[in-house]
Amino acid sequence: MPTTTTSLSERIFDRFVYLILCALMVVTIYPLLYVTFASLSDAGQIVSHQGLLWKPLGFSLEAYKRVFSNSAILKGYGNTLFIVIVGVLVNLFLTALGAFVLSRRNVLWNKLFTFLILFTMFFNGGLIPLYLLVKGVGLMDSLWAVIIPFAINTFNLIIMRTSFMSIPEALEESAKIDGANHFVLLFRIILPLSLPVLAVISLYYAVDKWNGWFYASLFIKDRDLFPLQVILREILISNSTDSMSSGGGDQFQIGETIKYATIMVATVPILFVYPFLQRFFVKGAMVGAVKG
Rank of each mutant, 00 (worst) to 15 (best):
M1A: 14
T3F: 10
S9T: 15
I12K: 10
F13G: 08
R15V: 08
F16R: 08
F16A: 15
V17H: 06
L19D: 01
L19F: 05
I20H: 05
A23H: 02
M25S: 14
V26W: 01
T28H: 07
T28A: 15
Y34M: 10
Q50V: 12
Q50I: 11
L53D: 04
L53V: 11
W54F: 14
P56Q: 10
F59N: 02
S69A: 13
A72L: 13
T80E: 01
T80D: 03
I83Y: 00
V86W: 03
V88S: 09
L89V: 15
V90H: 05
T95G: 06
A96V: 03
A99L: 06
F100C: 04
S103L: 07
L108D: 01
W109A: 15
W109Q: 10
K111Q: 10
K111C: 05
L116C: 12
L116N: 05
L118T: 04
T120H: 06
N124V: 00
L130A: 09
K135G: 09
G136T: 09
L139T: 09
W144G: 08
A151I: 11
I152N: 03
F155Y: 13
N156R: 00
I167V: 14
A170T: 14
E173N: 10
E173W: 05
G179D: 09
L185Q: 06
L195I: 15
L195S: 05
A206L: 08
A206E: 04
V207R: 01
K209H: 11
W210Q: 06
W213M: 13
Y215E: 08
A216W: 02
L218E: 02
F219Y: 15
D222A: 13
D224E: 15
P227L: 09
Q229Y: 06
Q229E: 14
V230T: 03
V230C: 05
L232F: 08
I237P: 10
T241P: 13
T241W: 01
S246V: 10
Q251V: 11
F252I: 12
Q253W: 04
G255R: 04
I258N: 02
I258G: 00
Y260A: 13
I263W: 03
M264R: 00
M264G: 10
M264K: 03
V265D: 07
T267N: 04
Y274F: 15
L277K: 02
L277H: 00
F281K: 03
A285N: 07
G288W: 04
A289N: 08
V290Y: 00
K291S: 14
G292A: 14
